[in-house]
Simulated assay, not measured.
Amino acid sequence: MIYRSLSLTALALVAALFTSCGGSGPNVISKSSIRSGSGIYAKRESFALPPASSQAVAAAAGKPRDKHSMPVYAFSDRNRIVRTTAYTSTESDHLIYGDKNATGTTLRYNDRVRSAAADWSFYPVGTTFRIKGLPYLYVVDDYGSALLGTGTVDIYTPTKEVMGLWATRTVEMTVVQWGSMTRSAELLSQRTSYDHCRKMLANIVRQRPDLGNVAKN
């Protein structure tokens, strides 16, 4: 089954990371602080990452490939080597959405949780993951037409400066918890006038025929 029920342990982890109470909440970094101090924050976000483990490289060797020649994984494969790109809400193709993600909530970028975009038929909305060498929990809450049909994950960054620091990177990633195919289908079924949404929805239904009725609503 693609869909998995959340374990109590995973729920506790995600809840702890998302909770913000008083002074114990995540340190949300403003755009002004990122731009100030001669790029001090940008320097801190150098994103120096270790190489992928030999086990991850070996596991990727026999996988089918997407259009970027990256391995395509089964949902049972939580540890994976992934192509990542970066985006920001001030890019021309995102200006109409402002700082909102595809679920209608605010894109996140703090010292605990950060937003990411993906093809929701590869990484359903709500999928949480970690990147080897970084302390953050990334959450798939957005998508993009350029990601269609690939395993590429687009990392949200708050400015073009930080986006340039990330650029395009191949990383080792571990899925902490899968998101919801049902929720993905519900959202995409409302946006079938967009070609990439329609195609993501069709691929979800191919994998989960029981969601065919959701797609028709």
Rank of each mutant, 00 (worst) to 15 (best):
H68L: 11
R4K: 13
D99L: 06
P50F: 07
I155L: 12
S115T: 15
I34L: 13
G62S: 11
W178K: 00
L147K: 02
L137A: 06
A116M: 10
G149Q: 05
A118K: 00
V72D: 01
C197W: 00
N213L: 14
M173I: 13
A56R: 01
K100A: 09
T85K: 07
R65S: 03
M173D: 01
A117R: 00
G23V: 12
E161Q: 14
G22K: 06
D142M: 12
T174M: 08
A60N: 00
D66N: 05
E45S: 12
Y156N: 07
S36P: 05
E45I: 03
G212S: 10
H68G: 04
Q190L: 15
I29N: 02
G144V: 04
L147G: 01
K31L: 12
S20Q: 11
Y97K: 14
S7Q: 06
P209V: 12
V28E: 11
F129E: 00
R169A: 09
R206P: 01
T88W: 03
I29Y: 02
K160S: 15
F47T: 03
A116F: 04
L11M: 15
K63R: 15
K63Y: 04
G179D: 01
A117K: 01
S38C: 08
V72H: 00
S193M: 05
N110F: 06
I81V: 15
Q190C: 11
A185C: 07
P64L: 09
A59E: 04
V214C: 09
D154S: 13
R206V: 15
K67M: 12
E186W: 03
S33M: 14
G104K: 05
R80S: 01
P50T: 08
N203R: 11
I40L: 11
A215N: 04
D99K: 09
R83Y: 11
S92Q: 12
K31W: 05
S184Y: 04
D99F: 04
P135E: 06
L17C: 10
Y136N: 11
L188I: 10
E45C: 14
W166I: 13
N203Y: 04
V153S: 04
K199E: 10
G98R: 08
A61H: 09
N101E: 12
L95A: 15
A202Y: 06
P71S: 10
L11K: 15
G62R: 06
S180H: 08
G98Y: 09
I40G: 07
G179Y: 01
Y97M: 13
Q190M: 14
T157C: 10
S76D: 11
S33W: 13
G23P: 01
R78D: 10
R206E: 15
S184L: 04
M163K: 14
S36I: 09
F18M: 08
H94L: 11
R78K: 15
W166C: 08
N217Y: 08
T192D: 02
D93Q: 11
Y138N: 02
M200L: 03
G62W: 05
T150G: 12
A58Y: 07
D119H: 07
